[in-house]
Write a protein that binds this DNA or RNA. Structure first.
Lengths: 254, 254
DNA sequence: GTACACCTTGACGCAACGTCAATGTCAAAT
DNA sequence: ATTTGACATTGACGTTGCGTCAAGGTGTAC
């Protein structure tokens, strides 16, 4: 079956402007243009638009959607499975929000008290999920799904005080690292302090600490451009320096 | 407890830029500025921000949120109750999406077939909800919650053919109305045809037809600027003319 | 005093369209 | 053949809600 632009826009619940825009940016091209210059969409485009709308529902930018869909390895069945999982996650977030509003009502009606932090439960999940989306894949591959889940649970239950503590620790790592680099020696007292502080920071996120995982993370900071860029903001070559300091601290230096 | 801008942004999971923007547009002013010119937020602002985030989660524009929150009659407990309801509705939509993706997977794996229209189930709900949001309150007040629910269910189950039929009918109403106005007589054959077509159009949306409801809707078209503006696009004074035609058609003309 | 985290204002840019203008195409009615 | 109205095109401006950056002030610990 074929659709002109208005037909498809009504079918899918998007505007014709949206479809023209998608053609323009190359995310959803019509099957063909007829002799009058009208866009004609076919079955493949229907399915493609469905995928686009799922990705959009899950907060993915059009630029990213374009990259994903144009990948020769794109597999629509796998994508659909992933959408399913993400939608279930999204539903969980919504459940948090629903619980939050119920709690807020109870608090307003005097049945309970509620901390300021609790008032934003469910919203904040967006930030955590964004972070997860950014790094989650790599961390999953390296440490497994279970570790990530536990880490997530631990982070979620963090109190406000703990949150501030971990923020301070993260900063202390950077501070000490910056100073330690001046010594030029990853084995120096300051460098070892940085590694120690880094470990303490990690204990807020990891259910269990292991020297191997710690050292692996240090290596990841060097191998992954995003982490490397973050630490190199502290000081050029900070990622390598921290990795080396961790290797010495953990006793795993080769 | 008081918060500087970064404290509140971290608490709520929004950026400092967002909070400054909210100050700028007057939607969330800080409690005070300290002697250094720093924004200081208090308990009232925390609660206000929570409300804002709920409204945002529910798709309300900042402009509208501002209007709602600055209304002297704004009642936060009632607002929270409404958020709760809306979040439950939103979860329903999400459930539709989840069902959709599951069905699409089944179809892809050859276990069932799926129409193009079904592929967009759940997304289209956005359009319906937008429509509901636009007119829903007024219709609810006039005809009660039950009627709206049934109407919603009926619309949801509309087939593609029915959808096209109702679209055609809506157009036919406008066409005939435009012609009938030329007669200047709401009792003329053409005007009565417009009212008849309007009734047929309504039967797609209303579970039950009544002359009183029909006449009431005609009056609503005149009283409500949004409806009036829509019909007056067809022809100046079309809203009044259609109302009069309906009154005659229903025999309820006084 | 210095360094660093945090704060301000101002301003430019962006994503994803919505809206509008001008004009071409199609199909049915006259 | 002409008219009318629905549908289509391209081009272009504008909007919402920030993200990002620059320049410079403030607070606190060393």
């Amino acid at each position: 079956m074929e659709y002109t632009i208005q037909k498809l826009s009504r079918l899918a619940g998007v505007s014709t402007r949206t479809l023209r825009y998608y053609d323009e940016i190359g995310i959803l091209k019509p099957a063909r243009m007829n002799s009058s210059g009208y866009r004609i969409y076919g079955q493949a485009e229907v399915d493609m638009l469905q995928q686009i709308l799922f990705y959009k529902e899950l907060g993915v930018s059009l630029d990213q959607i374009k990259q994903i869909l144009s990948d020769p390895n794109f597999n629509s069945l796998n994508a659909l499975r992933e959408h399913h999982q993400q939608l279930l996650d999204k539903r969980k977030q919504l459940d948090f929000l629903i619980a939050n509003v119920q709690k807020t009502i109870d608090a307003k009606e005097g049945r309970m008290t509620m901390s300021d932090r609790e008032k934003f439960e469910g919203f904040k999940k967006k930030m955590i999920e964004d972070n997860e989306k950014k790094y989650g894949e790599e961390i999953r591959e390296k440490y497994g799904e279970d570790t990530v889940k536990k880490s997530y649970e631990k982070f979620k239950n963090m109190t406000e005080e703990e949150y501030e503590e971990v923020t301070r620790l993260g900063q202390a790592v950077n501070d000490t690292l910056s100073e330690a680099i001046k010594t030029g020696d990853p084995g120096s007292r300051l460098a070892q302090k940085a590694a120690e502080l880094h470990k303490q920071w990690l204990t807020f996120y990891w259910p269990e600490y292991s020297k191997e995982a710690h050292a692996g993370l240090g290596q990841m900071y060097v191998d992954d451009e995003r982490f490397k860029a973050y630490y190199d903001q502290v000081h050029p070559n900070a990622a390598e320096f921290l990795r080396d300091a961790i290797l010495i601290y953990t006793g795993l230096k080769k």
